[in-house]
Every structure is written in C-alpha cells, then in structure tokens.
C-alpha cells in the first residue's frame, strides 16, 4: 500500500495534505486556523542547551531569597519555597499544593523532560519512552506558570513598597533567568520535528 501524506488537524479533525513550511514560515489549518507547524532552526540542539542551563538555575531560583523586607528594624526574606511552607503552616493545603505544583514542580519537570527528550534525540539514542515523555511535556507546559508568578512578584512588591523597605535577593535574578530559559524553551521547541524524529527512530528499531 502506498503511504499517503495526510494529517488530521488536532483541533478540528479536518484531513490535510502534509504542509512543508520552510524556516520562518508557519503552517495553519485552513479551516480553523490552528497552528500546525512552525519550523525552528536547530531545535534539538537548542532545547538540549537550554534545558541544561535551566537545570542549573533551578535550585537557586526555587530556594534562595527572592526579596527581603525590613520594617522598623525587623527583617525577613522570602523565596518560592518559604511561601509554600507558610501556606502549609496556615493550613491552606489546597493553595499551597497549587502554588508548589505550578511554580516549582511542574516547571522543574518540564525542564527535566525537555532534557531527557532532546538528549536522546541529540545523541541518537532510541528509547521506548520518548513518545510518553513528549505527551507529558505537552500537558505539563500548560500548568507550569513561572511568568504568572513573576507578575505576582511585581504586584507584591508594588503593594509593599509604601510600607516597607525591599531588597532584591540573588534568588530573584536566578528566577528571572529561569523564566527566560523556560519561555525560550517552550517557544523554540519544534513539536513537529521532534515527533518526526521519534517516529523515524522507532521505525529504524522495528
């Protein structure tokens, strides 16, 4: 049987001829406008390099003080983790869990998954779990919310600025760097190319 190059649009299910966009072009579904493909240069290499730097930034961004506060000689500093700990102390379990998952665990997992996937593709090592990891990465991407947390830091600082003396800690710089890595990581990942490589690898194995 001859293999026909047909793809179904993931959002409206219309059958489409396979598009061949070149670098810088985008392929949209003609019916619903869904972004089908967006080729990225050196996507595998870039994803690999970015996830390694993300891994390095993870610990300082999560555990070191973001901001320190001083009111009448009393001072304290806060990190991502200390906020979660205080919420647990106040018995706000649901809120604490949600903050922990969306600002710490899921961002970390997306970086680890990106590293695993791009590493296997970069070194040409087939692995039966690659497709599972890809699907998890796509799910987790939605629930990792570093950029929203950044906005939360800004609003909190504005609220406190008239009441207290604020100082930015090293954790904040690490956090901003981690945020930039996470954003470039998710926008630079060429899903179509990744899936194509994973399928090719599996075919070679079989």
């Amino acid at each position: 049987m001859r293999r026909i190059n047909l793809d179904a649009c993931p959002e409206c299910d219309v059958l489409l001829n396979r598009a061949f966009p070149v670098m810088g072009e985008k392929a949209h579904c003609p019916r619903c406008g869904y972004l089908l493909q967006r080729p990225r240069r050196h996507s595998i290499e870039r994803t690999f390099a970015l996830s390694v730097s993300g891994l390095i930034l993870m610990m300082p961004a999560n555990l070191m003080p973001l901001i320190s506060i001083k009111i009448f000689g009393n001072s304290n500093d806060g990190s991502l983790w200390s906020g979660v700990v205080m919420l647990i102390k106040d018995d706000m379990w649901i809120v604490a869990a949600l903050v922990f998952l969306s600002s710490m665990l899921f961002p970390v997992l997306t970086i680890i998954l990106s590293l695993l996937i791009s590493g296997h593709l970069f070194f040409d090592k087939p692995n039966p779990n690659l497709a599972v990891w890809m699907r998890w990465l796509q799910h987790l991407d939605e629930w990792a919310m570093l950029e929203v947390y950044m906005l939360g830091i800004i609003v909190a600082c504005v609220k406190l600025s008239s009441l207290a003396e604020l100082k930015f800690g090293f954790g904040l710089y690490a956090f901003v760097a981690l945020l930039m890595v996470a954003v470039t990581l998710s926008s630079g990942l060429d899903h179509y190319q990744f899936w194509q490589r994973i399928n090719d690898m599996q075919k070679q194995q079989a």
Binding site: I69, G83, V85, M86, K159, L160
Partner: peptide, 9 residues
C-alpha cells in the same frame, strides 16, 4: 504566597 512567606515579622 509571596506576601505570606515574606511578611512574617
């Protein structure tokens, strides 16, 4: 979450 962790004086 930030305020709770930070403003603990």
């Amino acid at each position: 979450s930030i305020l709770v962790g930070l403003v603990d004086l």
